[in-house]
Write a protein that binds this DNA or RNA. Structure first.
Lengths: 218, 218
DNA sequence: TCGGCTATTAAGAATTTTTTCATGGCGATC
DNA sequence: GATCGCCATGAAAAAATTCTTAATAGCCGA
């Protein structure tokens, strides 16, 4: 008997994963949720063999959530579901303690493999992400630019790239506007850009070169 | 016997929809694909009762694809899968001839409803999108979106898209900052976006598809 | 252990932007 | 030729952001 937690803001994705799990395992129990608060409630009151989490759920401070989770339950196996755009942040999450990273672009067979591997308490990364690790090892290359950003800064950046303004982000992360303002300034400074448009173009550059991506065009 | 086409870059989403359809209909055939080229090949050689398409498949020019599809097969029922961020472009797709729009955030029941409604050749919009439909009623084609900007506003927009701020533009155009500020507000309002990032994404949509023959950058 | 470094936080002041409102100009229309 | 709608313009008030400056905490190498 295995027990799973699935968190993704898209119902259709939860449905897809549910069926994948049902095909793979005979005797399972599945909890599904669509936001960080529910994830936290579920994890506090249940014991899971594996939690499969989207890291970009609206209104959710994922890093904070993961920190809470690992403080409460250090051995929980967590498999992160991600889109290619978010892979640049992979290292931060790995450091926090997640077991695996799987890209939503992956086919079902690969997702199955990721689930089984992490369930067996082994680390799993999407194929395309070994590039990231390698680049990171050389400590050079454009990706290390993103590594220069602290977890909090990365978090703020994702919100900035969605068009949120400083006050909205402050609200979301329960921080002072001037705090977020400071983060924003440091992000721009570290990445060598001067405004949001340039930040947007900069990150798009990576999406286009396929540097942080598994498959952009198939 | 119903025949469906599912196109989404995420395998897990295709899996989810496949199971939804299998639950809903007894006798069905499903083709699935993950990019625009395959969609086009499939539609040229098959006849579908409904095509469920993601409009944001990497490497795919969705507007061009839809134009080709409707030229070849004007009566094909198409249900667009979208994320909330993309909804601002909904009216363009509606004008092209798609039957429905469903947000990926929607729960399974609503997705079912969207599928059934469009299959019955009725228009379906996600609950939040009726605002957009009203906007469409006051209408004019996608090309005129930029035509609705006054010359001065277009000029300001090109500078905004280069990352210049309001005062820099004011300097450049020898105008008061508050004047430029007003122009900026009107640009955002007219194009139905709420911030610079969305403006950038919006114009990129047209650059990408070539639909925006209006000069965007001087 | 100490001192330097960085991350995170934010109060307060200075600045910029947004919002709101009002004005004059210009062309179309009736 | 009066009125209407739209454009371009900004003054003024309101809101948001940036620019300091600095406190606290954690990490790392000497």
């Amino acid at each position: 008997m295995k027990k799973f937690l699935i968190a993704d803001s898209h119902s259709i994705v939860r449905t897809g994963i549910t069926y994948l799990l049902k095909e793979e395992f005979l005797n399972i129990e599945i909890d599904a949720c669509s936001n960080g608060n529910t994830v936290w409630e579920k994890i506090k009151t249940n014991s899971y063999d594996l939690a499969i989490l989207d890291i970009n759920m609206p209104g959710t401070d994922s890093i904070n959530l993961l920190q809470n989770i690992f403080a409460f339950c250090p051995d929980l196996k967590i498999l992160i579901l991600t889109t290619s755009r978010e892979e640049i942040y992979a290292r931060i999450y790995l450091q926090l303690g997640v077991k695996g990273f799987i890209n939503k672009d992956a086919d079902d067979a690969e997702i199955r493999k990721a689930i089984i591997t992490t369930l067996n308490n082994k680390k799993y990364l999407s194929p395309g992400m070994h590039v990231i690790q390698r680049l990171e090892a050389t400590k050079r290359g454009p990706l290390s630019l993103f590594n220069r950003l602290s977890p909090r800064e990365l978090e703020v950046m994702t919100h900035l790239l969605e068009g949120k303004n400083v006050s909205q982000i402050a609200n979301l992360l329960c921080a002072h506007t001037s705090t977020i303002g400071t983060h924003k300034a440091k992000i721009l400074q570290k990445l060598g850009v001067t405004n949001i448009i340039e930040l947007k173009e900069f990150t798009q550059l990576f999406n286009h070169t396929g540097l942080g991506t598994t498959k952009l065009v198939s």
